[in-house]
Design a protein around this nucleic acid. Sequence first.
RNA 1: GGGCCUGUAGCUCAGUUGGUUAGAGCAGAGCGCUCAUAACGCUUUGGUCGCAGGUUCGAGUCCUGCCGGGCCUACCA
Length: 570
Amino acid sequence: MTRILITSALPYINGIKHLGNLVGSQLPSDVYARFNRALGREVMFICATDEHGTPAELAAAKAGQDVAEYCADMHETQAKLAKGFRLSFDHYGRSSSPQNHKLTQHFAGKLAENGLIEEVSEKQVYSNADGRYLPDRYIEGECPNCGFADARGDQCENCTKQLDPTDLINPRSAISGSTDLEVRETKHLYLKQSTMRDKLDAWIDEKKDWPVLTTSIAKKWLHDGDGLRDRGITRDLDWGVPVKKGDQDWDGMEGKVFYVWFDAPIEYIAATAEWAEANGLGDDAWERWWRTDKGADDVKYVQFMGKDNVPFHTLSFPSTIMGSNEPWKLVDYIKSFNYLNYDGGQFSTSKGRGVFMNQALDILPSDYWRWWLLTHVPESSDSEFTWDNFQQTVNKDLADVLGNFVSRVTKFCRAKFGEEVPAGGSYDDAENAVIAEINKRLETYNTHMEAMDIRKATSELRAIWVAGNEYLQSAEPWAKFKTDPEAAAGIVRFALNLIPLYAVLSEPFIPDAADTMLNAMNTKADWPTDVAAALNSLEAGHAFTVPDVMFAKISDDARDEMEQQFAGQS
RNA sequence: GGGCCUGUAGCUCAGUUGGUUAGAGCAGAGCGCUCAUAACGCUUUGGUCGCAGGUUCGAGUCCUGCCGGGCCUACCA
């Protein structure tokens, strides 16, 4: 039996994430995890907060908190929101965990042993007022090319010319505005990725089935200019994983930490170790997912991420893994996504533009958001959120097609036969035709889910819901009831049986609604392998209840109000 | 500047290795049903597939150029 290891890109710690962040990795990975669990496969689904780096320190300072305290609070907030959206992580870890400190230092030590680390002395801009080194984009000044006053140290937004911070005229700190800057000499570790270029190139070449978005970005970095460049993996910061070789100190690296992009992917592994500890299990429990010498040979490892994360997952992290010369599990498939835009522009934290995870849950239940986001997940190109589209999709698909189906069937039965599955009648041609159709659609649905074609899967699922309404319309139990109650009973029994089937098939997308359906029908169900059998599972006499309205519609007024509320200040 | 992605009905999107009259959902129109959240079902109107060339017996699909949108470009993460 194949085991499935799934990781979602780690949300950064510096604030509450918006819907674009959610749909770009966590939500689709959750669908895939739920689907695989439903099939009975053993799944390990990992996510964590990514807590290191300059922006985390600045966010903490802005919040007037110590950075460790800030990260702990924000981790709790994000974990709570993840639960609110029903993200079914087996563990939601923290990149600041002791496990990650230990593993990150371990990998660095191995890379050094294998001659893949180089010490480089370089010049960095230091801000006396801020008491810290400034990354290029945290330095602003006048562009030497076009004269734009607020050019950033890496690139001028106005003329798009790439810059070096020392090019700027009258440079200042973007954090404090201070001009008390100086260039200091500082020593850093570089990972010699360039020596692994051919190996990485050959490895990427094997991945014929990966999304073009994934492989093309990797190829660009491998072949652009002089090819893959070495990458600095340390920073002059206080908050992070202290630079060590395994458990040994690293001469000349005192007071420095590893670069956030070096330790963040290692947290996928460390979070699994956190999971083991949290569940009172030994190291072998997590190592069997990650070490091919300890049982991970039968693991299929799938990563989900936004396109901005691709280079780090196709090149940097594999360099770390391969360079260690230890039998760690490499990724088998990378599913990458484009971006979700908001009503004609980008989501913007600073402008308060767009919907953030906490706000979304304040307004409507998670299933509404999950369904819309997943039916519009940016798989082939960027996609766009509009309130009008959101309202239409939710009202039509969830309220009218699925919710109303459950409602009409259960209420009709209650009125004519009471709140139990009626006896009498039998399944005939009409029912067998529905079984045949669902069988066919289920096969397609399974194929899309295995391939992680999320949008195609949603439209197939919707078609399966529609089949129920079509059936009722042509079977007309309300008309039959007047002349042939037995026949009507058979129809209602069949229709009632569709509800648990729909619940199971819908669970990866709308888990709360699936629960509601199963609870109402007072049953449990497995992923169907035999649709005919599944539609015979509720027998005559089985008691059920009529659920409350599963999905209340979004009114035009409510839609307009929400649109106003989230328009931002642009 | 360079690289990649993208432009198909009013809207959101499918369109396998080029092969007869270009598909789906929503929206619009008409009809039907009345069990149901005025829900459901059936039928139907919308497209010189961004533009211009080219290859081919044949191109939405391949090539070239142009126009528009997006992302990345290695020190934000």
